[in-house]
């Protein structure tokens, strides 16, 4: 079970952030070659991300690269740097249709063969940033076996919807639609960035909403948000105690060859056991909620 609570954006051209961000231990880092990099620095950022991927700096942290759309003059070069560098995941921005994902998959497979990477070892994720993308989210989420998740990206989406960021109601439909598409496809779902980095209370309020909805995690733009997010996602001691009892009961039932799992006289089914394992996995990663 891969924990993906925090995905920290790092501008691909920023040597200082690239050289230090691993110390904050996000679950994933996302080296950005798209919006965070000016047009005249695209070439240099690509090389910086390539060599960072080749180094051991981010060992133990999932490494995602956000490329420019393949329709731009930069997308294919970005993809080559990312795949050859050994990126774990390619994040496709502005995904509108399943064909966008399929095109990416074809290009990735071609590059894997060219550079000797195991075919299928590069995972994909799609960022949904428009009304069309939201409407097509089920088709997008099921477009490739390589997809590990889909993300809502708020800034472009609210512009497309002719509104602006507010209390979250402007994202309500997109969040629910993308989340349902992800769950139907059995992949992960990631929420938008929270850009008011000094508003801890607002950030935690938003985290509470998206956690209750069922998102795996959130894209982040500041390392300070990582610990807050991980703590909010950490289970309570009560949750951990219950999860331990559920897993113990499941193991006992399996040892004894019983088809039915019981705890305190109540039947427990497989989804409850899976949920308990997720709770223990989160507790192992970030301890118990403070």
């Amino acid at each position: 079970m891969t924990l993906r609570r925090s995905m920290l954006f790092i501008p691909g051209s920023n040597a200082a952030m690239i050289s230090t961000a691993f110390v904050f231990k996000p679950d994933s880092v996302m080296f950005d070659l798209e919006d965070a990099v000016s047009l005249r620095e695209k070439d240099a950022a690509r090389l910086l991300v390539y060599h960072t991927l080749k180094s051991s700096l981010y060992d133990g942290i999932e490494r995602v690269v956000r490329i420019n759309p393949l329709s731009t003059p930069y997308g294919k070069d970005d993809l080559e740097a990312a795949v050859r560098g050994g990126a774990d995941v390619i994040r496709l921005p502005k995904t509108e249709t399943a064909d966008d994902v399929k095109e990416l998959e074809t290009c990735v497979e071609e590059l894997e063969r060219k550079c000797g990477r195991e075919v299928g070892s590069t995972l994909l994720m799609a960022a949904i940033e428009s009304a069309s993308g939201v409407i097509n989210s089920v088709a997008i989420a099921t477009a490739s076996k390589r997809l590990m998740g889909i993300a809502v990206a708020g800034f472009d989406y609210v512009v497309d919807m002719q509104t602006e960021r507010g209390d979250g109601s402007e994202l309500f439909y997109a969040r629910c639609a993308v989340l349902h598409a992800a769950r139907a496809a059995k992949i992960d779902a990631f929420d938008v960035v929270y850009s008011d980095i000094n508003n801890e209370e607002g950030f935690l309020k938003e985290v509470d909403v998206i956690k209750r909805l069922g998102f795996n995690g959130k894209s982040l733009i500041n390392p300070r948000q990582i610990e807050l997010l991980h703590n909010a996602y950490a289970p309570t001691q009560e949750d951990v105690d219950y999860a331990n009892r559920v897993v113990a009961a499941a193991e006992k039932a399996e040892t004894e060859g019983l088809g039915v799992i019981a705890l305190n006289g109540k039947m427990i089914d497989a989804p409850i056991v899976d949920s308990a394992k997720r709770v223990l996995s989160r507790a192992q990663a970030s301890g118990v909620r403070r």
Binding site: D43, A44, L47, H51, S55
Partner: peptide
């Protein structure tokens, strides 16, 4: 700069 940054910056400038 770390080694990966040195390589990347040099390559960018030379190219």
């Amino acid at each position: 700069a770390l080694d990966c940054v040195i390589e990347a910056r040099l390559e960018a400038a030379l190219l």
